[in-house]
Design a protein around this nucleic acid. Sequence first.
DNA 1: ATTGACCTTCCAGTGACTGGAAGCCCTATT
DNA 2: AATAGGGCTTCCAGTCACTGGAAGGTCAAT
Lengths: 128, 128
Amino acid sequence: MNISEVARQTGLPPKTIRYYEEIGLVQPLRDANGYRVFRETDAHKLGFMGRARTLGFSIEDCRTLLALYEDQHRASADVKRLAEEHLTQIDTKIAQLQSMQATLRHLVEECSGDTRPDCPILRDLAKD
Amino acid sequence: MNISEVARQTGLPPKTIRYYEEIGLVQPLRDANGYRVFRETDAHKLGFMGRARTLGFSIEDCRTLLALYEDQHRASADVKRLAEEHLTQIDTKIAQLQSMQATLRHLVEECSGDTRPDCPILRDLAKD
DNA sequence: ATTGACCTTCCAGTGACTGGAAGCCCTATT
DNA sequence: AATAGGGCTTCCAGTCACTGGAAGGTCAAT
């Protein structure tokens, strides 16, 4: 399977797949012409990566998750802990964004948004 | 005013302040010994930057906001538009994170988190 | 033989810092 | 006067996860 076919199957861009090879996440074979040859297992790993990335896991977390996936003797507790830590980070991030959202929404509502220079948004940013 | 004093006043790390000078956001004076000398206006600009960054505006947006702030003839509509666009991006980001959060929360709940290898999180990531 | 779509590698850039090394400057103490 | 410490300077490299682009080899069809 060539890179574009794996890209189609996984939804990952070829560039990203090459990058994942570079950082050691997959080791496709090579054809006589130098082209990468992906096995089913490679494609599967890359699909796994793609879904884990979609859930916001970092590359290093994904690496760990892949290793756990491939370890028959893993404890689900290890997976769960990783997921819970990540979930906590997501919660934190959402809270931060919601705080920005609330402030900004309020300021935007206050702003007349006409041709006059007076603006509560700038006033807020310029406050001491 | 030396850099550490401005850092204290604005809450920005000295490194960040030097970086902001490097990209042309402030132009502090220089003392005979080469030390940066910040005026009140510099400190004020940096405080403005800090608050705008806290609201999640990109550096380029901050640059625009600063220019609008300094333009006596600005229209508040320009400020409002920028803020609204940014708000939309925040909304989008929150929605994405909430989607991750929901999926992950569900998976974490399903996972027994014990010593057995069976794990719905990995099953989900490995699905076709 | 040529076209055009693949594939390859390598290098640079993104955003917004952050860490660290090497070295000058200032003040206070010995 | 020498030294210790802290603060200041510049410059370089690293972060994260790609992404864009250049230069060039390969393949299938015309």
